[in-house]
Amino acid sequence: MKVAVFRPDDERLDEAVELLESLDVNPVPDPMLAVHPTDETPRHADFVVLTSKTGVELADKNGWNPGDTTVCAIGERTAATLREYGYDVDIVPDEYSSRGLVAALADRVDGKSVEVARSDHGSDVLTDGLADAGADVHETVLYELVRPNEAGRSAELAADGDLDAALFTSSLTVEHFLAAAGDRGVRDEVMNALDDVLVGAIGAPTNDTAREHGVRVDVVPDTASFDRLAEEAVARLHDEPNDEAQV
Rank of each mutant, 00 (worst) to 15 (best):
D136L: 07
A117K: 05
H138T: 14
S119C: 09
D136W: 01
A131D: 13
L126G: 06
D120A: 11
E139S: 13
G122C: 08
V141Q: 06
A133E: 00
D124S: 15
T140S: 05
L126T: 04
A106E: 12
S123W: 11
E115V: 03
R118W: 13
D110Y: 11
G134F: 09
L130V: 02
V141M: 07
L105M: 08
S119H: 08
H138K: 13
D128Q: 15
G111F: 09
A131V: 08
V116L: 06
D107H: 07
D124H: 15
H121L: 15
V109G: 02
L126V: 05
H138M: 13
D107L: 03
D110I: 03
L130D: 01
L126W: 09
G122M: 08
D136A: 09
D107C: 01
R108D: 11
H138R: 13
S123P: 08
D128W: 10
V114M: 10
V137F: 00
D120S: 12
A135L: 07
D136I: 08
G134T: 06
T140P: 01
L105Q: 00
S123G: 12
A106W: 02
A133K: 02
V114K: 06
D107I: 01
D124Q: 15
V116M: 04
S113V: 03
R108V: 03
G111D: 08
A133I: 02
A131W: 08
D124I: 12
V116F: 10
R118A: 12
A131Q: 14
V125R: 15
E115C: 06
S123H: 12
K112P: 05
E139L: 09
D120V: 08
R108Q: 13
E115P: 03
E115I: 05
A135Q: 04
L142C: 00
H138Y: 11
G134R: 05
G129L: 04
H138I: 07
R118K: 12
T127Q: 10
L126K: 08
A117D: 03
V137R: 00
A135F: 04
V141E: 11
R108L: 13
V125D: 10
K112R: 13
D132M: 11
V116E: 02
L142S: 00
G111Y: 09
D136F: 06
G111Q: 08
H121Q: 13
A104D: 01
V114H: 05
G111L: 09
D132C: 07
D107P: 01
S119V: 06
E139A: 12
L126A: 07
D124C: 14
R108K: 15
S123M: 12
D110H: 12
A103R: 11
R108F: 07
L142T: 00
G122L: 10
A117G: 10
D128F: 13
H121W: 11
A106F: 04
D132I: 10
L105F: 02
T140I: 00
R118D: 06
V116I: 13
A131F: 08
H121K: 15
L130A: 02
V116A: 01
K112I: 05
K112A: 14
L105G: 00
V125G: 04
